[in-house]
């Protein structure tokens, strides 16, 4: 193979390398991802109290918290460190708090985020009970709660523990879905 052909092959290789370098040099610079902050809220409230009514106009639940932001895209509410009260018949109310709450526009669903503590005082209808768990989905108007997290329910004379819980505050039905440990104290002799 004579010298001229070798020289042409070498030149072509060099040319290819040079153009590849050029393409790399003039590639478009990666722009930083556009800043996506928290959803834009059309209004925020500070130190507010929210009373939600059900279809019959009865008080379904109350939420008080230092801050609330209403999202303009789906009308949901984002609340920090809420304290809430789920109203029930005959004063059978549950009070509680959580780290965050997200409430749908129509108030039918409430996601209580982080640690959740709820308790019910003794009434004629039901006895004192305290619930400690995490990440609860609440359906205030149906007065139902559910979580996949471990839950502890304390009542005078018993402590119930399980993983995963469903509760119907209206019919006083309670379900623990796994790893159940129910401890019943001995009655104190009168």
């Amino acid at each position: 193979m004579d010298r001229r052909r070798l020289v042409t092959i070498g030149a072509v290789i060099l040319g290819a390398i040079a153009t590849q370098l050029l393409v790399w040099l003039i590639r478009p610079v990666d722009e930083p991802p556009p800043f996506v902050g928290p959803p834009r809220s059309d209004y925020t409230l500070a130190d507010f109290e929210l009373n939600a009514l059900d279809e019959q106009g009865r008080l379904a639940f109350t939420v008080t918290a230092p801050t609330l932001a209403r999202r303009n895209d789906d009308g949901s509410l984002w609340v920090e460190t809420p304290q809430f009260r789920l109203s029930g018949k005959d004063g059978d109310n549950w009070k509680g708090r959580s780290q965050t709450a997200w409430v749908t526009k129509d108030g039918t669903r409430m996601l209580l985020g982080g640690e959740v503590e709820m308790h019910r005082d003794t009434t004629d209808v039901a006895r004192y009970a305290r619930l400690e768990t995490r990440d609860v989905t609440a359906y205030p108007k149906d007065r139902k709660l559910e979580t996949q997290a471990p839950a502890t329910i304390t009542q005078p004379g018993s402590i119930l523990r399980g993983t995963g819980m469903k509760a119907d505050l209206e019919t006083h039905q309670l379900e623990l879905l796994a790893d159940v440990h129910a401890s019943f104290a001995r009655p104190r002799k009168p």
Binding site: L174, A178, V180, S183
Partner: peptide, 16 residues
């Protein structure tokens, strides 16, 4: 005179 403990996979209470 001792407390009673019960363990299980599933628990359904009708407090009513």
């Amino acid at each position: 005179e001792q407390p009673l403990d019960v363990y299980a996979n599933h628990f359904q209470a009708d407090q009513g």
